[in-house]
Amino acid sequence: MLVLIITWLINISIGSISIPLKEVFKFLTGQHLENETWHTILIQLRFPKSLTLILVGVGLSISGLLMQTLFRNVMAGPSVLGISSGAGLGVALLLMGSGWLGWEKMEQAFGQISIVMSAVIGATLVLLLILLLSLKLKNNLSILIIGLMLSALTAALISVLSVFSTAQKLQEYLFWGFGNVSNLGFDAILFLFVLITLLSIWIIKFLKPLNLLLLGENMAQSMGVRLAFTKNSLLIIVGIIVGVITAYVGPIAFVGLAVPHIARMLFKTSDHKVLFPAVILLGALMMLVCDSIAQIGINGQVIPINAVTSLLGAPIVIYLIFKQKNYQI
């Protein structure tokens, strides 16, 4: 917790203009800073961005934990099931396809909201598809493979779309794809906060069934877990969180996958009563660290946050799997 707060302060203080930690602390305790520029930067850029980072980290990590347990697979994560890609396809259709689909007016009229909507719709559609297939296919591995196929499919569709789109539209989409956590207004942040808080409270009800699910579905069922209800509820929660987050900040890779693993390593347990709060803290921490690294950048150039999460997340996962011979969820 303390580490999280310190990281938060550091994250707020760094950027193209670095602001001393002391001043950041003063700002957060509600005082007005003498340096007007610093004050403006903090209130309009750094502070909302840091809140976004925390919410995104928490949301994605929770989703990753739920998915890894549901699919009892260490490689499950929001980006693996194709949910992020679904959201991406939605955005691509809007940004690049609107020209020949005749949606331009809609895009102009709604702006940011239309991007959010199309991503949520895209994510939810992929999720529904997976849900439908999971009723047919009881095997979790098959569902994972279908998720991967859906990712490939949406990627291909996006490539096709890019052929028909203008250079400007393509660029717009590419920038969305890099991930951007600094564009959210306070209303969007508040919405994310309320959404993630409500869903987290809902998840707490499922902590016990989640533990039982780790013993296998038959075992869980024989101990009174309502299998279909539990699985569907959790999948819907994941879909909403991932869809909304992806819409707002673009596809952020590896955070959802890596954080639950780090939590298991640190706490050496599979108990969701421990892992759930752990993942919330570590998820926030991970995003703050990644963004701080992105801000420091290379030769003063800011790196896209998605690149940092992948650069950090991928080796962490590989390391974890190599370190433990019989890797266990």
């Binding site: 009892r72 260490v74 707490i204 009800k205 902590l207 016990k208 533990n211 039982l212 780790l214 013993l215 296998g216 038959n218 075992m219 101990m223 009174g224 298991r264 050496k268 347990t269 599979s270 108990d271 009563k273 266990q328 969820i329």
Partner: peptide, 26 residues
């Protein structure tokens, strides 16, 4: 058949038998 992909210890495993009776936080 039982899933082995978890880190529960023997006590926790046996305690799962009681989860039918325990409250929501187990």
């Amino acid at each position: 058949e039982v899933e082995k992909g978890h880190q529960f210890n023997v006590y926790e495993m046996v305690a799962f038998g009681r989860s039918v009776y325990t409250n929501w936080i187990d």
